[in-house]
C-alpha cells in the first residue's frame, strides 16, 4: 500500500456523509464502526506491535464509557463509613478526557501487574480484569444503575470561550467527531511506531532477550504501550457513551473484544492501516448483510468471509496486498535508496 492510501481513505471518509445525504441507518453504522475501529487500532498497538494479547480489551472501552458518562451525568453514592460522595455533572467533553485518563490508569495497573511475567499471564489478567469490571458495573447499582442502564447521557459539546459552542446532536456531527478522534489516534500510533519507542516494542516482540540485552526495559516499554492502548480504547468508549447516550453493562461483553481482535487480525496486525481496513470491513459487514439474509445466515457468511480472508492472506489484508504489490514490481527493492545513505 502506498503512502497515499491512508490520505485517500481519510478524504473518502470525510466526503462520505455528503454523498450519503443523511441516511441515519448508514451513518449510525459508520459511527459505531468508527468507534470499534478506534478500539481495534488501540488493540493493535499491543497485539500487533508488542505481541501481547489483551483479551479483556473491552474493559478499557467500558471504563472509558462509564467514567465519561458518570462524570457528565453526576452521581451520589455511599462509599462506606457513612461517607457519601456527591459529584455534580461536568461537561461531556471533560467526561471524555476523564474516561480516557481513567482507562489509561487501568492500563498502567494491568501492565504493572502482569508485564513482569508477560505472555499468557497478561492474557489471563486482562480477561479477569474485564470480567471484574463488568460485574462491578452490573452490581454497583447505586452508581451505575446496573442492568437498568445509565440513560440521558449528554451529547458532547465542543467549543471555545468567546467562539461559541456546538452540541453534537446530529449523526453527521458525531460522525465527524469519531473521524477526528480516529485520525488523531492513527497519527499518534504512527508517530510512536516509527520512533525509538516503536523500535523498542518491535525488538521485544521479535527477540525479547536480545532486546533486553541492548538496554530496553521490557516492563516499562510494555506498560507504556498498555497505557496508551488502554487510553485510546477508553476514548472510544467515551465516544460510544455520548453518541448512544445510554450504556449498560453490555459494553463489557467479551464479544466486543473478539470483534476487535478479528478486525486487527484480518486487517493485518502490526501494520498501521490493518485495523482500519479490518475495522471498516468487519464493522460494516453486518450492516451490508442484514437486508439480504436471515440473522443466522449473516453470522455464517461473516465467519466464512473471515476464514476466506485469512486463508488467502494469512497475515491479514494489508500485509497480503503489500506482498502482492511487491511481487508485481520485483525491481523496486533494489532501486530503493538506503535512507542512511540518502541523508
Amino acid at each position: 500500500m502506498t503512502r497515499l492510501a491512508p490520505l485517500a481513505l481519510l478524504a473518502a471518509l470525510a466526503a462520505l456523509p455528503l454523498g450519503l445525504g443523511t441516511d441515519p441507518y448508514l451513518l449510525n453504522a459508520l459511527i459505531t464502526t468508527g468507534i470499534l475501529t478506534i478500539g481495534a487500532m488501540s488493540l493493535n498497538l499491543l497485539l500487533g506491535f508488542t505481541g501481547q494479547l489483551s483479551l479483556g480489551h473491552v474493559a478499557f472501552f467500558g471504563i472509558g464509557a462509564y467514567v465519561s458518562a458518570l462524570a457528565s451525568l453526576g452521581f451520589e453514592v455511599e462509599v462506606g463509613f457513612g461517607l457519601r460522595v456527591v459529584h455534580e455533572p461536568w461537561p461531556a467533553a471533560v467526561g471524555l478526557v476523564l474516561g480516557t485518563l481513567a482507562a489509561g490508569a487501568c492500563g498502567y495497573l494491568i501492565g504493572r501487574l502482569s508485564f513482569r511475567v508477560r505472555g499468557a499471564y497478561f492474557v489471563i489478567v486482562t480477561i479477569s480484569f474485564a470480567e471484574v469490571v463488568r460485574l462491578v458495573a452490573l452490581n454497583w447499582v447505586e452508581l451505575t444503575q446496573g442492568p437498568l442502564a445509565l440513560t440521558n447521557i449528554p451529547a458532547v459539546t465542543l467549543g471555545l470561550p468567546g467562539l461559541g459552542y456546538w452540541t453534537l446532536k446530529t449523526k453527521a456531527q458525531n460522525y465527524y467527531l469519531v473521524l477526528a478522534v480516529g485520525t488523531l489516534c492513527y497519527l499518534v500510533i504512527g508517530r510512536l511506531v516509527g520512533s525509538r519507542f516503536g523500535r523498542a516494542m518491535r525488538g521485544l516482540k521479535e527477540n525479547e532477550s536480545l532486546a533486553m540485552s541492548v538496554g530496553i526495559n521490557a516492563t516499562r516499554t510494555l506498560t507504556v504501550a498498555a497505557v496508551i492502548s488502554a487510553a485510546m480504547a477508553g476514548a472510544a468508549g467515551g465516544l460510544y457513551a455520548h453518541y448512544l447516550r445510554i450504556i449498560d453493562p453490555d459494553v463489557f461483553l467479551f464479544a466486543t473484544t473478539v470483534t476487535m481482535v478479528i478486525m486487527v487480525v484480518a486487517g493485518g496486525k502490526g501494520t498501521l492501516m490493518g485495523p482500519v481496513v479490518g475495522g471498516l470491513i468487519f464493522g460494516l459487514l453486518p450492516v451490508l448483510l442484514r437486508p439480504v439474509m436471515a440473522p443466522e445466515a449473516q453470522w455464517i457468511v461473516y465467519g466464512l468471509i473471515l476464514i476466506a480472508i485469512l486463508f488467502a492472506m494469512p497475515k491479514g489484508i494489508v500485509p497480503g496486498l503489500r506482498a502482492l504489490g511487491a511481487r508485481r514490481r520485483p525491481a523496486s527493492p533494489v532501486l530503493e535508496v538506503n535512507p542512511a545513505v540518502q541523508r
Binding site: R199, R202, G203, E206, L210
Partner: peptide, 14 residues
C-alpha cells in the same frame, strides 16, 4: 543474535 523480521539497519537502530 538478531531481530529477524527487521532489516540489518533497523536491527542496529533498535
Amino acid at each position: 543474535s538478531v531481530f529477524p523480521d527487521d532489516t540489518v539497519f533497523d536491527n542496529v537502530m533498535i
